[in-house]
Design a protein around this nucleic acid. Sequence first.
DNA 1: TCATCTGATCCAGGATGATGTATCATGGCT
DNA 2: AGCCATGATACATCATCCTGGATCAGATGA
Lengths: 196, 196
Amino acid sequence: MAYQSESLISQAREIREASAVSQRALSERAGLTQSHISQIESGKMEPGLSSFIDMTRALDLELMLVPKKLVPAVLGLVKAQATPDMHIHAGQPNDKRFARAERLVKKMKQLYGSSADLDRIEETLRFLRRVNLSDQEMQLVRELIARLERYKASAQAAPIFRDIAQNLQRLRNSTAHAAPSEPRPAYSLDDGDVNA
Amino acid sequence: MAYQSESLISQAREIREASAVSQRALSERAGLTQSHISQIESGKMEPGLSSFIDMTRALDLELMLVPKKLVPAVLGLVKAQATPDMHIHAGQPNDKRFARAERLVKKMKQLYGSSADLDRIEETLRFLRRVNLSDQEMQLVRELIARLERYKASAQAAPIFRDIAQNLQRLRNSTAHAAPSEPRPAYSLDDGDVNA
DNA sequence: TCATCTGATCCAGGATGATGTATCATGGCT
DNA sequence: AGCCATGATACATCATCCTGGATCAGATGA
């Protein structure tokens, strides 16, 4: 319902997920209820300013006021240091790949209606995008996306989509539990459309 | 009442004032009520996230999520380009002068209790700080501040304070109506304490 | 002095944020 | 199969936002 704050809220959610913090854990740190956070993140209710500040502060973020003119500069600054390893030498080809895939899924949901599998695929892609994947892992993702593309208009695509969703899910789980010691985050703040 | 959002709200207010936008004008642009805005700015009520976004967008600002670590960098970026003319060759000596004066007034209010004149002086200083003053005008301000300093502990300081307040007020009025054509603003976003 | 503009304040009423507590389906782990 | 954690929902209750007026004192300019 609240169009203006969508971007900020979804950014917060993505960062929470990328930091592997559960809604319950966040609720304790922020002093809010888990149900509250769930409703905020799913867009079912609009937070008060201070609630949102509590939430983001608990995620080690600050809400700042920036002149519109400077938004691109700040965005660049944030993005640059958010994912230092991944973006240093390469031209983030993975990021583009994910972006294309996510667009594809979104389109398919529009055309053929959303299914549970498409939802899972979308969500998992959104998660994997934030993670540093090995070449092998990225190879797997590439194949899965290609398969998705190939069968996107197929008649009996359903079971295939289910399989793709499961594969992505498995990959997600493996990366999530792989190296909890490293500062896994590597999130980026850049995808929300900041421009109204 | 809402400690977390104080800083953001007062920033917004200062920018509104520096841009010479009235609460009513802002209320129309933002789609809120004037009474609403007044209550928000005076801390009598806590805005919803989207209300605050509407408000700041109408002031040509964006609310952004920034990793705490990057806050100083962003702050520097914003500050640097907020007052380009004033800070280019000089080491903003005027700014420091105002800062000292404001600290002085605040201290006096603590020690001797606040008076209407002190309040007026404080508010006017806060306004004048954001304005590009000519050398002559700055000279006047300097003298007034010096006078304030000199009589700060004097027994019969009251009439002198009144005089200082009036002088500052007059200066404020003259600058406010002087050049409505130029992009007077030159606000800065730096004074709120961003760190909790 | 009169007209105007500003920000603060009041009030009634409807909308909605926020809390607690509790339940539920899913998915992963053992 | 059982267990645990996750996120989504439900519901009652209370608090607060937010609107829509309207008014007010103060400062400014004509």
